[in-house]
Amino acid sequence: MHELSICQALMHQVQNIAQEREAEYVTEIVIGMGPLSGVEAQLLKNAFPIASVGTVAETAKLIINDLPLRVKCGQCGAESEVTPNKLLCKNCGNWRTTLISGDELMLMSVELEKHKEPEAVH
């Protein structure tokens, strides 16, 4: 359950960005995550309300984009989309592959709002 620690680190980064840009609210947080990031998306989502309470991002929407797991073969050079416990080249079956993507755990973007939308007055 290190997702809470990671979520707290996320909140720290988000709060710094909001402060730098003098934003009052964070409305959306987008994270990119690969299957080999070592973090479970659902657990991170569960941790988010706990970590964000009382912060500028308390009402923010958390969006998690799943990034694909891809390897490049050291022998034939082919690229394959693979699963976390089978990283073999799908073209020639060689195990000496290198990861191209799939271990990311990244804050991609935040959406900020300076002031809350004023109540409509007509």
Partner: peptide, 19 residues
């Protein structure tokens, strides 16, 4: 700038940046 006038900031930092 997003459609609603909110500011979208691209960050692209590891979540474990501080660690």
């Amino acid at each position: 700038k997003t459609e609603s006038g909110k500011e979208a900031v691209t960050v692209l930092h590891s979540l474990l940046h501080e660690n």
